[in-house]
Nucleic acid binder design. Sequence first.
DNA 1: TTAGGGTTAG
Length: 707
Amino acid sequence: MIRAYAWNGPFEKAIDLYYEMVESGVRPTKYTYPFVIKACSALQDVENGVEIHEHVKRKGLDGDVYICTGLVDFYAKCGLLVEARQVFDGMCQRDIVAWNAMISGCSVNGLYLEMMGLVLEMQENGLTPNSSTIVAILPGIAEANKLREGKVVHGYSMRRGFVNDVVVDTGILDVYAKCGLLNYGKRIFRVMSIKNEITRSAMIGAYVTCDSTQEGLELFEQMRMEEDIGSPSPVMLATVVRACAKLNDLEKGRKIHGYTVKLRSNLDLMVSNTLLSMYAKCGRIDDALNFFEEMNLKDSVSFSAIIAGCVQNGHAEEALRIFQKMQLSRVDPESATVMGILPACSHLAALQLGVCTHGYSIVRGFTEDISICNALIDMYSKCGKIDIARIVFDKMNKRDVVSWNTMISGYGVHGRGKEAIQLFYNMQTVGQMPDEITFIGLLFACSHSGLVAEGKYWFFRMCEEFKISPRMDHYLCMVDLLGRGGLLDEAYRFIQNMPCKPDVRIWSALLAACRIHKHIILAEEVSNKIQYLGPESLSNFVLLSNLYTTAGRWDDAAHVRVKQKDSGFKKSPGCSWIEINGVVHAFVGGDRSHPQSAKINEKLKELSTEMKKLGYSAELSFVYQDVEEEEKEQILLYHSEKLAVAFALLNLDPSKSILVAKNLRVCVDCHSTLKYITLITKREITVRDASRFHHFRDGICSCGDFW
DNA sequence: TTAGGGTTAG
């Protein structure tokens, strides 16, 4: 009976019967164990499997080849490779089934090298791979994207006559698809005489993986019409939902959602996790959140998906709230959860949580993963700790292009252009090819550190030597570089010579440069161009009005502001936030609703008095409202970054430096005020604004007033 | 044999 259940399910019954047998005093024989272990393996039931292993040891049956083979398979299927290997190594005699179980374990757990090593070893031991061996290694080859090895195995299978078997052919189809050879996959699919549901799922998945997503959906519809598939499996539905997400096709996604409800497949955890992710990827975070709340069963994938979804849709605080819930519900964070949390920390400049997540990642062994380290580098960099980011970078055993790009961009936003360039040289020394994102980081770094000649040089080499054709982002960096450097005419000529039509951002960069260098005539011309281009952005009104004010042309400034009002542009409120003891506190300019508001105001007034003694006078041109001078000073005093800094001075341990993040660019008055505050309080203050970092210390800022 | 959650810039 146990044997019957172990073969055909329900597997739980096999295990229940085994325990019933033991409790009723009937002694299981060595013929019982392989079956009950097979049931544990099918269910991935670690607890019972381990206990039954203990029974086996007590009975002294741990030398039996069939039982041990079963145990190797059980541990491998449960992802416990170390235990699987222990049993495997302990076997004095191994048949091909044992080798295949061990190989399969490595294959599905992503241990490609170990897997290939075992295949060689088994041949050295006089065993020839059979079709089960081939079936076992194909997923590993597919996962590792080893096209050459895939072709070798394909050829071997043909010579040995393993092909024309639905399981082998489906595996080979999948290898070609994962390696990007969609046409090979299509050909195999076409000539297969017998196809099962898994083959069809694999083919749809192949289209999705190879960016022929629409064709994948068409194939699914065609199969549905031709009734090749009666009721699609959860795996197929998940693949189709993923296709909708990839195409951003919400309407289609909703239809499939309805279909899964009809089939009751929406109760399947994998399907519901994919649906959840589909809503988030289509930008419907509210739908995703509602769906998440309504899920009866949630696992770590559900949490990871909603956390990542929140961050992608700009709701980092919500992501952290859900992360807390996850910990309360005792679902262990996986590496993909950490992958969602780290960008949330980056966005919120939540260093303490970032550091905790780093610690957790080390304990769980996630820091072996390149992507996790890349996310850590970004987190430290965006939380103001560029030197710690560098330590993480240096400690990595292997780096990919993202690691280098993240580090180079990090140096860029911190205004450490020379280090960005040095790192770019190192990158070439180790043979890592830069991509277009590398150059965005490098050019940004040059422009924000005033390295005009270097920027021009690298832009030239990017085009000529690296054969990367510049994108709008690269042109933007160059206009910014030339403009900030005071080469306004050259920047203008550069724009005119661009092979593509410059967008609003390009002209805005030039306008911003006009403001820095007080070039009114060019500013007016550029401003006209922007208006002609439309839609105008708010920053253009602000820049122009600001420029007129600085030049004392009050009427013109007022005229621009009226026009801004008439066009319906409203300045989005400045918002700053700061993390204290792991809690993020947010402040909006002029906001007096904070519980500590009175104390904060008092602190600011006190600082203002001290500052005036040191020679500070308010930069009133940054207030746009039509109000009296004294009132203008008051408005400036309550800019969000000042509120956040005052709050930090009141609540943060004096030994700690202050890190404030802001959604907009820091204004000239705040910039100057913060310098004075570091003089008065002897505290270090770092501000991350919408464009870069400002490290204030002893009355000076790391940006050299150049931003 | 198919499969759900993920890093850089903008």
